[in-house]
């Protein structure tokens, strides 16, 4: 941890070079190049089917790429299971459908990985978990089961669960897409406060307000390609490509 803090902010955290991926014959990701610096907040948007989720799922190898290199925190992702596990320990992920473990309580959801993967003593893991549950503002739900919580609460638990592993990088895969409007806000607020603490974030989302507020860079993807990548100000006010303009007019137009 202390090592990470002493590093300069321009250090590269994630490097994707000439990455290609196919599902069978279908070319889903085309020559992706992306560098993410430590502490950077990146929002990825684009029409559905454009490969956004697939791209961030490649970063912790929930999806395999077939060509090119992905280097996360200095570790290159290959078929070596040791490398994959090492990367996954340092990369947290939040899913569209929360994916909490329904047979475990909220607290057990949060302590499971620290206890089994990091070998943290149980009491310490529980203390950490309570700390993070307080940060996402649901400590009182610690002993309930996920099925007893609302969608927004479940997603905040999922964020806390990831944070309990003290990851260097957080990936968000459409974290608010399965939520009711009033719950979107509570999850976004949690993510904003997380962003303010300086963790590296990659977030696939359609919440353009969130992008304007916290993103250092907004990336627009379409048909498996990164079309445009810019700071939010220029991205929204002065998009360069026609496809970006069309997309923005469609999602901001109503």
């Amino acid at each position: 941890m202390s090592e990470a803090q002493s590093n300069s902010t321009t250090e590269k955290c994630i490097e994707i070079r000439n990455m290609n991926k196919w599902y069978g014959d279908f070319h889903v990701l085309k020559n992706i190049n992306l560098e993410v610096c430590k502490g950077e907040k990146i929002v990825i948007c684009g029409p559905s089917g454009s490969g956004k989720s697939t791209m961030i799922r490649c970063i912790n190898r929930l999806e395999e790429h077939q060509q090119g290199d992905i280097i996360v925190d200095g570790t290159e992702l290959t078929n070596d299971l040791k490398n994959i596990d090492a990367v996954r320990r340092e990369v947290g992920m939040v899913f569209q459908h929360f994916n909490l473990f329904p047979h475990l309580t909220v607290l057990e959801n949060c302590t499971l990985a620290p206890i089994w993967v990091r070998k943290t003593p149980k009491a310490e893991a529980e203390a950490t978990a309570m700390e993070f549950l307080e940060r996402v503002k649901i400590p009182e739900q610690a002993n309930k089961y996920p099925g007893q919580l609302s969608g927004g609460q479940q997603q905040r638990v999922a964020i806390a669960r990831s944070l309990c592993m003290r990851p260097n990088i957080m990936l968000f895969d459409e974290p608010t897409s399965a939520l009711d409007p009033e719950m979107i806000k509570e999850v976004l607020d949690t993510m904003v406060s997380l962003a303010e603490e300086g963790i590296t974030m990659l977030c696939v989302t359609h919440e353009m307000g969130f992008a304007k507020k916290v993103a250092d860079r907004v990336i627009f993807m379409d048909q498996g390609e990164i079309i445009e990548s810019n700071n939010p100000h220029d991205f929204f006010d002065n998009p360069q490509h026609d496809r970006t303009k069309l997309f923005l007019s469609q999602i901001l137009g109503h």
Partner: peptide
């Protein structure tokens, strides 16, 4: 759901 294994994997299990 497939997400259960993905969540477990993404936590490093």
């Amino acid at each position: 759901p497939k997400g259960q294994l993905e969540a477990a994997n993404s936590l490093g299990l």
